[in-house]
Amino acid sequence: MSDTRPWIYGTDHDDPDPRTPEPGHVYVQLVGDPLDGQLLDVTGYTTEERADGALLMSSHGLHGPSGRSDYEPRPGAPDRWDWQGDTP
C-alpha cells in the first residue's frame, strides 16, 4: 500500500517522515507543476506574506536547481496556492 499523504516542501530527502505535518503549524497546498501536491508550512508568514505567495526553490522547474517556482494564493481559497511559472 502506498502512502498518499502529501510531501512537505523543504523536508530533507533523508527525513524519516517527510509527510507528517507538525502539530500547531499552518500549511497551504501547492497546486500545479513542479511542486504540485506538496504542502508548504506558512506558520511564520505574516498576513502580507501569505497574500503575496512565494518563490520556492525547485530543481524540477524550468531553470533547474538554481530556479524558483512562483506560487500565489488562489482567489477565494487561500489555503491552496497555484503555480504561476518559473524564474531563474
Rank of each mutant, 00 (worst) to 15 (best):
Y45I: 00
P16F: 02
T46N: 13
E48W: 08
R50I: 00
P23A: 09
P16I: 01
P16Q: 09
G37W: 03
V42M: 15
Y45G: 00
Y45N: 05
P16D: 12
T20L: 11
V42G: 11
T20I: 02
G32D: 01
R19A: 08
P21L: 09
D52E: 12
T46L: 13
D17T: 00
V26Q: 15
T20R: 14
T43K: 13
Y27I: 01
D17G: 05
V28K: 11
P18Q: 11
H25Q: 08
Q38G: 00
D52Y: 07
L39P: 00
D17L: 05
P21F: 09
L30E: 06
Q38A: 07
E48N: 11
D14S: 12
T43E: 10
G24S: 04
G37R: 06
H25C: 10
R50M: 10
D41E: 12
Q29T: 13
D36S: 14
D33N: 12
L40F: 02
D36E: 10
Y45A: 04
H25R: 15
P23C: 05
V28H: 13
A51M: 07
G32L: 02
Y45M: 11
P16L: 06
D33C: 01
G37L: 02
Q29V: 05
P34M: 08
D15I: 01
V42R: 15
Q29G: 02
L30H: 08
D17H: 11
G37E: 04
V42N: 14
L35Q: 05
G44V: 00
P34K: 07
E22Y: 09
D52N: 12
Q29S: 12
G44L: 13
T47D: 14
G37S: 10
D14K: 14
G44P: 00
P16W: 03
R19C: 04
V28R: 08
E49N: 05
G24K: 07
D36C: 10
L39Y: 05
E48R: 12
A51H: 06
Y27D: 05
D36N: 15
V26I: 15
P23K: 13
L35A: 06
D17F: 01
D41W: 13
V42W: 15
D33V: 02
G37N: 04
Q38H: 03
D41A: 08
R50V: 00
D17E: 04
D15A: 15
V31D: 14
V31A: 15
D17Q: 06
G32Q: 04
T43N: 11
D41M: 11
T43P: 03
D15M: 05
A51Y: 05
R50T: 00
P18K: 09
Y27A: 07
T20K: 15
P16K: 08
P21H: 08
A51S: 12
L35I: 00
Q38W: 03
L40N: 02
R50A: 08
D15Q: 10
T47A: 15
P21E: 03
D17C: 03
V28A: 07
L30Q: 10
D15F: 03
E22F: 09
L30T: 00
D33F: 13
P34V: 01
D15H: 12
E22V: 08
P18D: 06
P18E: 08
Q38N: 01
Q38S: 06
T47K: 15
H25L: 01
D33T: 02
P21Q: 10
G44Y: 11
E22N: 09
T47P: 03
G44C: 10
D15G: 06
P16A: 11
D17M: 02
V28S: 07
T20G: 11
V26P: 03
D36M: 09
P23N: 07
